[in-house]
Simulated scan of single mutants.
Amino acid sequence: MGLMDKFKGKAEELKEKASELAGKHSDQIEHIVDKAGDAIDKATKGKYSEKIEHGAGKAKDAVGDFAHKPKPGGEGQTPQPPQP
């Protein structure tokens, strides 16, 4: 196994972990996105409210698409593919 294969495997492992954490904490992430949007809207005095709201919605959708949702009664772990 070459060095690049090891890096690729580690990157995939880190992506999976980030996805799992995003799923477990999606409510908190959405709350932070809302707070950031409100702060930006206030700083711009409502001039870009519609664009900010649209961007916040896109950010929440992206988190939802990326996140692995925990399974009810389970650890929320997704099965790992076998390593060669």
Rank of each mutant, 00 (worst) to 15 (best):
G37E: 04
G23M: 03
A59N: 01
E20F: 05
P82Q: 12
H68Y: 11
A39C: 00
S26I: 13
P79E: 13
Y48L: 06
K15D: 12
H31A: 15
G73T: 05
A11M: 08
K15R: 15
K47E: 14
Q83E: 12
P72V: 02
L3N: 03
A11S: 07
H31N: 07
D27Y: 10
S26F: 03
G55H: 11
E16K: 14
V63H: 02
E12N: 09
P84D: 07
I29K: 02
K15G: 05
I52W: 08
F7S: 02
V33C: 03
D5A: 13
K51R: 10
F66W: 12
K17N: 12
A11K: 11
F66V: 01
G64N: 14
A59H: 03
G76E: 05
E20S: 08
K60E: 00
P72R: 04
K42M: 07
H68G: 02
G23K: 03
S19Y: 02
K24N: 04
I29C: 04
A56F: 01
K8A: 15
K58E: 11
T44G: 00
S19D: 01
D34Q: 12
H54M: 08
E16F: 09
E13L: 10
H25R: 14
P70M: 06
H54Y: 12
E20C: 02
P79N: 08
D34H: 13
H54E: 13
S26Y: 05
D5K: 07
T44W: 04
G23V: 05
Y48F: 14
T78M: 12
L14K: 11
G76D: 04
K47M: 15
